[in-house]
Nucleic acid binder design. Structure first.
Lengths: 252, 252
DNA sequence: CGGTGTCTTGAATACCATCAAGTCTTGTGG
DNA sequence: CCACAAGACTTGATGGTATTCAAGACACCG
């Protein structure tokens, strides 16, 4: 408990205290499923037994074209949905944060169409797809949470399309950081006073998410730091000048 | 009836014969809703009365941030979902073809988050959202059609992300054309022998969909034509050398 | 008939990629 | 504990792809 690596320390308390202590428990499926569970007959559970899985950083969580009879939800850590191209280049479709359903399409389609890679160590639960579907309309709260997740997933995909199609490198990177910060704030994962946040992304992650090269990401980030708008150190990030940074990002 | 513009001629027979003659009737919601209608009590209809609307080419169908209590489905013509940026540039999120739900998110969210513009003259129907939702789980066929539409919508968005992030101008344009051809083939809208298809897109539409400028789109298309891989004339397009064109597109 | 929208082509420029070399950190096996 | 390798990041030089700017051809329409 004293000289452990950083990531494990952040995950341990949740494992001990259970899902209710999860930062994102209220946000997505987990809370709705827990409440629904009370009304289910004994023995019928939506969550798959022993579904709590841990994957080390940089490991593949799900492979492309894997078949799933379950819907996975991230409990702790960061992951990424990635498409691999034949020439070896990669495109990150989305970053997965605690509370995120890996893909809402998995509720109806058993085939994943991209791979999921752990960025930090990742813990996830899995819910039985058939059981989830069967209970969707009996439990309005579940359906509502689910449709929200789906709408947000699609909205973020659409945003990314606009960013990749019509924005400069600086805008793309700034918007990526701001969008991640926004999602972390909603999970209570940004320090209230300092506005500092965990930022485990490597520059190649940023490159693969923004359609740039790692070299160019490095140059833009250096530019941001020299300008004093952000600070990055020790896998954490602070937006020092939110007004200017949002102007760079062309937001608001 | 004798000297009408071209587009109206193509739509008229469908208006007369009703929805069952629509090229895409089997593909999406329309068929499932029609079949469901038999089992509904008198007076309860899912389709909104007089919901058949016609919008001329180049006109806006739905405005950004419009509120909808209905789910619109394209019956005839081409449209585009578009995001406008503050500097005046545009990004097309998707092209809407006959049979397409304008946005599957509209089943749960009344707010559209992009605008829809008619490319050709467009005819669409609207279904009552509350009635649709209420019947989703009573009619498995409806739910299945709907989840398929949603999965395909998301898969196309993800494809576009990869294209914009990691592919060259030639690849993007070739893949756009091939993807449209594929969707038209499924609707029976590609001439069986000649493989010719209607192609009402202006070059600025291609530019806005691929994140390029109209000038560069013109240059790439000219290159394709000079190479003899495609033929474009009179708002119709033929892929002359499918093998080579797919190689350019990096498909298969 | 001028006006508008569409497309083409060429020249100059900008943005980002590629290539390359070097620093610093992290991890690992001897 | 050190040596070494691999990964992560930085920086500069060079190059290519796509943009911007500009001018002209052509069709269509009121």
């Amino acid at each position: 408990m004293n000289a452990r690596p950083k990531v494990v320390e952040t995950i341990e308390p949740q494992l001990k205290l259970g899902c209710a202590s999860c930062a994102a428990h209220d946000l997505t499926l987990c809370r709705a499923v827990s409440e629904m569970a009370w009304s289910l007959p004994r023995g019928e559970s939506v969550e798959i037994q022993n579904s709590n899985q841990i994957v080390p950083a940089r490991r593949i969580v799900f492979r492309d074209h894997d078949l799933h009879d379950a819907v996975p939800v991230i409990c702790a850590g960061w992951a990424a949905s990635i498409v691999l191209l034949s020439d070896g280049s990669r495109q990150i479709l989305s970053f997965l944060l605690p509370g995120d359903i890996v893909s809402t399409a998995l509720l109806f389609d058993s085939r994943a169409h991209c791979l999921v890679e752990a960025i930090t160590e990742v813990r996830y639960r899995t819910f039985n797809r058939a059981a989830l579907k069967a209970n969707l309309y009996k439990h309005p709260d579940l359906l509502e949470k689910f449709s929200r997740a789906w709408i947000e997933e699609k909205a973020r995909a659409d945003q990314l399309i606009v960013d990749l199609g019509r924005r400069t490198a600086e805008e793309r990177i700034a918007r990526l950081i701001l969008s991640l910060q926004d999602r972390l704030v909603r999970r209570g994962l940004v320090h209230a006073d300092t506005e500092e946040m965990d930022f485990p992304l490597r520059q190649h992650h940023i490159a693969d998410a923004t359609g740039l090269t790692p070299v160019h990401v490095s140059k833009v980030l250096s530019e941001f730091r020299r300008g004093g708008v952000i600070k990055i150190s020790e896998r954490s990030l602070t937006v020092l000048d939110p007004v200017r940074f949002r102007r760079v990002a062309n937001m608001r």
